[in-house]
Simulated assay, not measured.
Amino acid sequence: MFSTLIIQGCALSASQVPITVSLKSTPSFPACAYDYVERPEPVPDSWAARAVSPAKGTLEVSLLERISRGRIGIAYSARVISATTDDGSNVTNTLPEAICLKFAKLPYSRSLAREAWFYEQLADCQDISVAHCYGFFSSTFSEQNDTPYSLQPWCALEDPSSSDSEEEEETKPPGSPAISLDWLPDDEPCDEYKDTRNFKRDSPWNTWNFTPDNPTISVLVLELLGERCSDQWESFWPRDDPPDGLKEDTTAIMHDISIYGVVHNDVTAFNLLQFTGSEVETRQAHCPRHNVVHGWRIIDFDRSFRVDMENGTAQAKEDPPRFNPSAIGRRSSFWGKYS
Rank of each mutant, 00 (worst) to 15 (best):
324 N>Y: 15
8 Q>G: 08
254 M>W: 12
46 S>E: 12
245 G>Y: 06
328 I>W: 08
184 L>M: 15
243 P>I: 09
254 M>N: 11
69 R>A: 13
265 N>Q: 12
42 P>F: 00
143 E>H: 10
198 N>A: 12
291 N>R: 09
20 T>N: 11
245 G>W: 03
172 K>M: 14
301 F>R: 01
174 P>C: 04
313 T>L: 05
118 F>T: 00
252 A>H: 11
161 S>M: 06
156 A>T: 10
251 T>M: 10
289 R>T: 01
293 V>C: 02
119 Y>G: 01
128 I>H: 00
228 R>A: 08
121 Q>A: 14
299 I>Y: 02
188 E>M: 10
79 R>E: 13
63 L>Q: 04
326 S>K: 14
257 I>N: 04
99 I>Y: 04
133 C>F: 06
184 L>C: 10
299 I>C: 03
119 Y>V: 02
82 S>Q: 15
191 D>W: 08
42 P>Y: 00
26 T>F: 11
176 S>C: 06
266 D>Q: 04
99 I>N: 02
176 S>Y: 03
137 F>Y: 15
75 A>W: 09
256 D>E: 13
59 L>G: 00
32 C>A: 15
265 N>I: 12
139 S>W: 11
178 A>C: 03
54 P>W: 05
216 T>Y: 05
81 I>V: 15
182 D>Q: 06
203 S>Y: 05
74 I>K: 09
21 V>F: 13
240 D>S: 10
61 V>I: 10
122 L>Y: 03
16 Q>D: 12
259 I>R: 15
5 L>Y: 10
68 S>P: 00
236 F>S: 12
127 D>Q: 11
272 L>C: 04
216 T>V: 08
201 R>L: 15
109 S>R: 08
100 C>I: 05
40 P>V: 00
319 D>F: 14
